[in-house]
Design a protein around this nucleic acid. Structure first.
Lengths: 231, 231
DNA sequence: CCAGAATGCGAGCGACCGCTCGTGTTTGTC
DNA sequence: GACAAACACGAGCGGTCGCTCGCATTCTGG
C-alpha cells in the first residue's frame, strides 16, 4: 500500500468555489465504461471486501486493462466513494422520505415493520452496500459516509423514541437508539445470510425483537386498540 | 500478499497420531519471547485488525527483529492461531463449565444475565478476542475456531431454548438462537465502545433486549412467581 | 571449557499492489 | 480526410508485505 500521494494542483483558491473540472468531456463510451467498472467493483467488493479487492481484479472483472480503469477513477478509494454515492442516491430516490417522516399516531409495530422492511429490501438488492458500510477496513471518505448515514438513522430513531417517550432522559434515548441500530444490523446480517422463506422468517424475527424490546417502554402510552396480537 | 506456501513435510501418515515435533527444545528465554510476541501481537491485532497488522510491526512492538519472530512462529497465521488458542483456553479455565450447564428451573432473567455478564467481561478484558473472532479478514484456521465457538454457543442456546420450549419446531429454535447470538454480538460491540457506567448501562440494555425478546416465548410456562418486575 | 543447540539480528528476496506512462486506437468535429 | 480529444492497452515503477538466510551471540549439557 503506497501512501496516498495526495498531489493536487493548487487550484485558484479563495474566490472561486467550483475548484476543478478542466472541462473533462465524456463520451457515451466512457459513461458505459464507468457503469461497467462500478458494477465490477460492486461484485469484487462484496465478495472480497474493500481492502482485499485489487484494482487489477476490478479491471479484469470489467474486462478492461488497469490503465483504462485509471482513465475514469483517480484511485481505488474514488471507486468506492462513487459507488457509495450512487447507492446512497438510489436509496434516497427509491425510499424517498421514507426514512424521514414520523407519524406519531402510527402504532409501533407498523413503524418498526415498515422501516425494517425497506432497509432490509435495499440491502438485499445491493449487497455491496453492506460490504462498504459495515466493512471494517474501508478508508476515510467511505467511513465518513457510513458515519453520516449511521448518525442520520440514529437521530431518526431517537426522534421517534422521544415522541413516544417525552419524559425519558437523553442518555437513555441515545442508548436505546444505539441498541436498536445494533439489533437491526445483526438482523440484517442474518437476513443476508439466508434466502427466500428463511430470509423472510429472519426479517420477521428482527421485527419481533425490536417491537418486544421497545414495547415495554411505550406500553404506558394512550391505547393502541389491539395490543393482544403480537406474534 | 504472497500465496501461502503450504510446504509441509509429508509426515508419516496413518498410524502415528502425534505427527511432528523434531524435538524442539525451548529455553526459558524463548518462552518469554513467545509471550512477549503474543502480547505485542494482541496489541497490534486489536488496534489494526489481523490483515492490516504486519509481522514487522509485531516484531517492532515486541522490540525484536523480524527474524526472531519467525524463530518462534512459522508464519503470521500461526501467531493469531496460538493467540486464539490461548484465549480460548483461558476462557474455558476462567468460566469453566459456565457456558455448559443449564438448570431448567433458573428464571430466564437470571440465566440470560449471568451468561451475558460473563462473556462481556471476558471480552472487555481481552479486546483481541473480539478483533480475532468478529474480524472479517482473518484466515482459515482462526475462522474455524470462531465457527467452532459460534456453533458451540449456538447449540447451547438452542438447548436452553428447547428446554423452555419443548414443542417449538427445530427451525424456529435455530432462528431464535441465531437472533440471540446476533443481539449479543451487537450488544458486545456497543459495550466495548464505551467505558465505566455507560458500558454497564449498555450491558443492562442488552439483557433487557434479550429477556424481552425471549420472554413472550416462554411466557406460557408454569408459573414464575413474579412475572411483573421486568425492568 | 567447549561443542552445539537455541536465540537474535537485519538486509533483502520474491510476490503483489496501487498506480503511471508511452503508445496505439476510436470517436467527434470541421 | 484531418486533427484533436477521449479511450484503451499493458509493461512496469515504486512500494510494502510476508518471510528467508547467513551470520553473530547466548545458553546448556557433558
Amino acid at each position: 500500500m503506497p501512501d496516498s500521494p495526495e498531489k493536487q494542483a493548487p487550484e485558484s483558491q479563495g474566490q472561486d468555489e467550483q475548484q476543478e473540472q478542466p472541462p473533462r468531456r465524456r463520451q457515451a463510451r466512457g459513461e458505459r465504461r464507468i457503469i461497467q467498472l462500478l458494477e465490477a467493483a460492486a461484485t469484487v467488493f462484496s465478495t472480497t471486501g474493500y481492502t482485499a479487492a485489487s484494482t487489477n481484479a476490478i479491471a479484469r472483472e470489467a474486462g478492461v486493462s488497469p490503465g483504462t480503469l485509471y482513465q475514469f477513477f483517480p484511485n481505488k478509494e474514488a471507486i468506492a466513494i462513487e459507488l457509495g454515492d450512487r447507492l446512497m442516491h438510489e436509496m434516497r430516490d427509491t425510499y424517498g422520505e421514507a426514512l424521514a417522516p414520523i407519524d406519531p399516531v402510527t402504532p409501533l409495530e407498523e413503524a418498526v415493520g415498515a422501516a425494517v422492511e425497506r432497509f432490509i429490501d435495499f440491502n438485499c438488492q445491493h449487497p455491496v452496500f453492506f460490504a462498504l458500510m459495515h466493512g471494517p477496513d474501508v478508508p476515510g471518505r467511505i467511513t465518513e459516509a457510513h458515519d453520516a448515514l449511521h448518525s442520520t438513522l440514529h437521530s431518526r430513531i431517537e426522534g421517534l423514541l422521544s415522541s413516544f417517550l417525552p419524559d425519558a432522559s437523553p442518555a437513555d434515548l441515545t442508548r436505546t437508539a444505539h441498541m436498536c441500530l445494533g439489533m437491526y444490523k445483526a438482523g440484517l446480517e442474518l437476513a443476508l445470510a439466508h434466502e427466500g422463506a428463511e430470509r423472510e422468517a429472519y426479517v420477521q424475527e428482527l421485527k419481533n425483537a425490536l417491537v418486544r424490546y421497545l414495547d415495554p417502554l411505550v406500553g404506558e402510552r394512550l391505547g393502541r386498540p389491539d395490543a393482544t396480537t403480537t406474534a
